[in-house]
């Protein structure tokens, strides 16, 4: 597959800090647009939605790294940490916009987290991602050993919660959130089947 080889060669030359930089500049640029009226008449909702949707896209990209390598040969492995950390960063910004700019009232925030199922689910997803973000460094990987892998499987749970959260926010019957959820569930299924196979192979070869 020459196209994939070319892509892999190009990507090898791209340092992962570029991803962090682009990922950090984008929200800052959005915030600036919001201040100068570039996000329309309801900038709060645009920021909130944009951060949430980008976080879901990054989650999906993160889940796709392994299947992409297996099925197409495209190697995004070296960007996986950056994708994961940015996912958390966007989820955090989504939460902050909701908390500070949208709901504003702290007692209301607590009431919402406890009383509104879609918010509860979103919050659980955030809490699961928190230790993952904090341990996304070489030191933690060394320190935690095999426990690190188990801990970071939390990303699968968070992904499903994120997808469900989006489906539950929608008013009426809307396709887009269901497409996101389908991608997430599909990628997890591919992963489950894949790991099932490799387990089988391992047991066959003893």
């Amino acid at each position: 597959m020459p196209v994939v080889d070319h892509l892999n060669t190009t990507l090898r030359k791209l340092p992962s800090w570029v991803l962090y930089a682009v990922g950090a500049v984008y929200p800052a640029w959005l915030l600036y647009q919001g201040l100068i009226g570039g996000l329309g008449v309801d900038p709060v909702k645009v920021l909130e939605h944009e951060m949430g949707e980008r976080a879901l896209q990054l989650l999906i990209l993160g889940l796709a790294v392994t299947p992409l390598r297996r099925f197409t040969g495209l190697n995004l492995m070296k960007f996986r940490r950056a994708i994961g950390v940015l996912t958390f960063f966007y989820v955090l910004l989504h939460l902050l916009v909701w908390l500070v700019l949208d709901v504003q009232i702290l007692s209301q925030v607590w009431a919402d987290i406890l009383k509104r199922p879609y918010i509860t689910i979103g919050m659980v997803g955030f809490v699961i991602l928190l230790p993952l973000a904090l341990t996304s460094n070489n030191w933690s990987i060394r320190k935690l050993g095999p426990k690190w892998r188990t801990l970071h499987k939390g990303a699968y749970v968070a992904a499903v919660l994120g997808g469900v959260h989006y489906v539950m926010v929608a008013k009426g019957f809307q396709l887009e959130p269901l497409i996101y959820l389908a991608f997430i569930v599909g990628l997890l299924a591919v992963r489950a089947i894949g790991s099932g196979r490799s387990l089988l192979r391992k047991s066959v070869h003893g």
């Binding site: 919001g34 201040l35 009226g37 309801d42 900038p43 709060v44 700019l101 504003q104 209301q108 509104r116």
Partner: peptide, 20 residues
């Protein structure tokens, strides 16, 4: 509303930092 409170509202046109 089952999914959000109706006790307050955001007035459109107030920009990013408009108070509820």
């Amino acid at each position: 509303h089952p999914r959000w409170s109706q006790a307050s509202e955001r007035k459109i046109g107030g920009g990013l930092f408009a108070k509820r």
